[in-house]
Design a binder for these strands. Structure first.
Lengths: 182, 182
DNA sequence: CTGTAATTTCAGAAAATACTGAAATTACAG
DNA sequence: CTGTAATTTCAGTATTTTCTGAAATTACAG
């Protein structure tokens, strides 16, 4: 049904729908989010349902999901009884939230499972090997998580500078080598 | 029917099945991969089908998928007519492959879509705003991609040192700040 | 070649997921 | 309170994805 959308916005919305379905978030929720992000003004559920041609109830569930991910926030507009929703104005804030939420949902449970399996003592050499692999995975995931959490601490301004640095980013990691003494 | 697996390995396999379904790779393929990774010796399709209770054809499709992700490699065992499969011995190699493949499948198409939409000239102020957001997204994604590609260049040994550094990892990023002149 | 073992393909069954419309609930203006 | 607008819930339907078994193909020992 998709009413009102210009081809450009339409394309972007559709693309994020497709991509969304490759992440946890499903196709329609992906479309809804793109629509909200690309729109300067906050949108209400009816706007979304109309623009994308979804049922009102589907939009309601999508909003619930986006709220649970903390990707949108509710706001009341003066003189409006309906509830409006908008995305953070800063894309880096969006990305940070996404990273954070995915960590909670995907990484943390895995770390916890691995930890639990690692405290058991191996019953045979097969389990011994398996535990070794699990130990390596646990270490690696923990380290990568640490890295990303450090990066997440950067605010938008710092990130901007980093961006300016462009492909010289390698230098940062070269310095790391020095720090590591090699 | 899951024959032969010890409870420890069983649990791990099941967990990666669940997690797998949250990534692109589906539940059974996730289980298959965990099984291969945790097993010292290469496995053949029948081993996998028996251990996990899947149909032989499902295993065949799963193997095909894991090969297309380059997460396993085919090998022939001496005196064996059947084909055997194994995962890289180094978990960091596995992670690098995963990151790389996900980039190809999820990030690159998005960057390309955004780029295409950004070369159009905005038809109105609504599109102007939308394009601004798209531009920010494009920049951000490109930068994060650059970062991860730098990290991916590290080999296992260097990564090990980094790992030893533990939570002092923050220092690396502090140095970055100096580099950025603030 | 021939026969058999191993693997792949694929149409359709089964399962999981997403979506809708109707009914219920909530929110609030008057 | 009352009535109406807005939102949510949820049972059922539709769609998509996954999985299987049977048939086809491929690989290779003899």
């Amino acid at each position: 049904m998709t009413k009102n959308l210009t081809p450009m916005i339409q394309s972007c919305v559709m693309h994020f729908g497709e991509m969304g379905s490759r992440w946890g978030i499903n196709r329609t929720v992906g479309q809804m989010y793109a629509l909200i992000v690309l729109n300067k003004e906050p949108l209400c559920a009816d706007d979304i349902a109309e623009a994308l041609g979804f049922s009102r109830s589907n939009v309601s569930m999508g909003i619930k999901e986006l709220l649970s991910w903390e990707l949108i926030k509710l706001q009341h507009l003066p003189g409006e009884r309906r509830e409006f929703y908008s995305a953070p104005g800063d894309v880096w804030d969006i990305a940070k939230t996404l990273i954070e939420q995915r960590r909670k949902r995907e990484i943390d449970p895995t770390l916890s499972t691995l930890r639990n399996l690692l405290i058991e003592s191996p019953a045979n050499s097969e389990e011994e090997y398996a535990q070794q692999r699990m130990r390596e995975m646990h270490e690696l995931i923990e380290m990568l998580t640490l890295w990303t959490s450090e990066i997440q601490r950067l605010d938008s301004a710092k990130l901007g500078k980093l961006l300016k640095l462009g492909s010289n980013i390698g230098k940062v990691l070269d310095m790391k080598d020095k720090l590591l003494g090699r």
